[in-house]
Design a protein around this nucleic acid. Structure first.
Length: 421
RNA sequence: GGAGGGCUCGCAUAGUGGCCUAGUGCACCGGUCUUGAAAACCGGCAAGGGAAACCUUCGUGGGUUCAAAUCCCACGCCCUCCGCCA
């Protein structure tokens, strides 16, 4: 959603932004035309409506023949009002449909291009040199009794898994560590609903190009959220926030559901790409002028977490074509995965500026009336990928895995050891 | 699943077809008075669109009517009770 005023005042910037994303710039012109039609229809309706209001009032006080005559006029006027009203609502619906199809304006600082055109901002930590044959997380998970992908597939199909024993404990430790870290930083912990109404999904921008990855319960018209970003953003839907209380920061712990459509053949082994997982997410509502700074803070909290996990990683500045419709800029943290000899995304933070807030109608009151706030989100920990990173990076030659110091107090152990079976 | 009650501009409430352009109280903001405060008094005080006139919004969506907060239909949510249930 790009609102009508922004669209009219700055169509060139929106066209350029659409192009940078590899999306249609024609849509901008269609929306502009629809907006003009919408505004004409509103003017026409309002004029007729004002006339009708006046006439109705005079009928109220009129008597006898005078009233009969007025009623005749009023009837035909009512028909014209009704006609103008339906034209107006059709024009508004048309405009909304087109406006909702427009993605957020990209941040000029974001690298232009597609998925492969990211910029590496920094690399932190050094990949270990292993002097033994390394095992991947599936093997380690099996040896440690931590992950059971076979039975996950038996019960639910591909891309499902069980976390068992220390695997389950590790999730709880990661969650506890993340929540306590976020709470210390001023985030309000939240356990949100994960079935949401269309308005929440639409408002956060997940029903556009990302719709194919969303589970939809058709019978009840609920969506299963792919991230707690959705219920956290929609938490303040249709509200006016007190400007003095911004930034408002929430941390959500929730299951996440993803259809992973179009990823056939990708990451089919293990738990890197799954249909269901838990995640601790950070979410901020702040003033638009503070959003870029807040984005850096979210990134820093993500880095703090990865540092505490003692995992080598790099930070990338995601290119415009890979931002998703809501973000104007996105930083991903990619952990080193030894068995793949590659950095893989483990966390991601997006600045959505006022894009979601417009669609969700979340505003703050200022000198010149109300205006939309900015929303930002960032992953603190997505459990399966973090488990993969921890197991693979901290594995020992005997198949045991060292527990990062930060998690030891939550786990009551400093090492996972192979179980006999 | 069944029965009943409710939803009005922050909160509470009034309002059963046209002076509702939605009244009142509380809260809040500004002013007068006061050394300061309280009280009292005066003024302001929902949102969106619009330069303004004006238009829209009384849970949501339809309908009746010249005219709907008000009448009709459907739905949503909240509360109470019953049944079932972790």
């Amino acid at each position: 959603m790009i609102d009508s005023k922004l669209l009219r005042e700055n169509p060139d910037a929106i066209r350029a932004s659409q192009k940078a994303r590899g999306e249609s710039a024609d849509l901008v012109d269609q929306a502009l035309a629809a907006d003009a039609a919408r505004r004409d229809a509103i003017v026409e309706f309002e004029a007729l409506r004002a006339e009708q209001n006046l006439l109705s009032k005079s009928i109220g006080s009129a008597k006898g023949e005078e009233k009969t005559a007025l009623l005749e006029n009023a009837k035909s006027l009512a028909a014209r009002v009704k006609d103008a009203d339906s034209k107006r609502s059709a024009a508004e619906a048309r405009f909304n449909e087109l406006a909702l199809g427009l993605s957020n304006l990209v941040d000029p600082a974001a690298p232009i291009g597609g998925e492969a055109d990211f910029k590496v901002i920094e690399e932190i930590g050094k990949p270990r040199n292993f002097d033994f044959e390394i095992r991947d997380h599936v093997e380690l998970g099996k040896i440690l009794g931590a992950i059971d992908v076979e039975r996950g597939a038996k019960v639910s199909g591909a891309r499902f898994y069980y976390l068992t024993g220390v695997g389950a404990l590790l999730e709880l430790a990661l969650v506890n560590y993340a929540i306590s870290m976020a709470t210390k930083s001023g985030f309000i912990p939240m356990i949100p609903p994960v079935l949401v109404k269309p308005a929440a999904m639409e408002g956060t921008g997940f029903l556009g190009q990302a719709a194919e990855n969303v589970f939809h319960l058709v019978e009840d018209d609920f969506y299963l959220v792919g991230t707690s970003e959705v219920p956290l953003a929609a938490y303040h839907m249709d509200e006016i926030l007190d400007g003095a209380k911004l930034p408002l920061r929430y941390t959500g712990y929730s299951p996440c559901f993803r259809r992973e459509a179009g990823s056939y053949g990708k990451d089919t082994r293990g738990i890197i790409r799954v249909h269901q997982f838990e995640k601790v997410e950070m979410f901020s509502f702040c003033r638009p002028e503070d959003a870029a700074e807040e984005h850096k803070r979210l990134l820093n909290w993500e880095k703090d977490f990865l540092n505490a996990m003692e995992i080598p990683y790099r930070v990338i500045d995601v290119a415009t074509g890979d931002l998703g419709s809501s973000a104007n800029r996105k930083f991903d943290c990619e952990a080193w995965i030894p068995t793949q000899s590659a950095y893989r995304e483990v966390t991601s933070t997006s600045n959505c500026s006022d894009f979601q807030a417009r669609r969700l109608n979340i505003r703050t009151k200022g000198e010149n009336g109300t205006s939309p706030v900015a929303t930002l989100n960032g992953t603190l920990v997505a459990i399966p990928r973090m488990i993969v990173a921890i197991l693979e990076n901290h594995q020992q030659s005997d198949g045991s895995v060292l527990v990062p110091k930060a998690l030891q107090q939550y786990l009551g152990m400093d090492r996972f050891t192979p179980v006999a079976n």
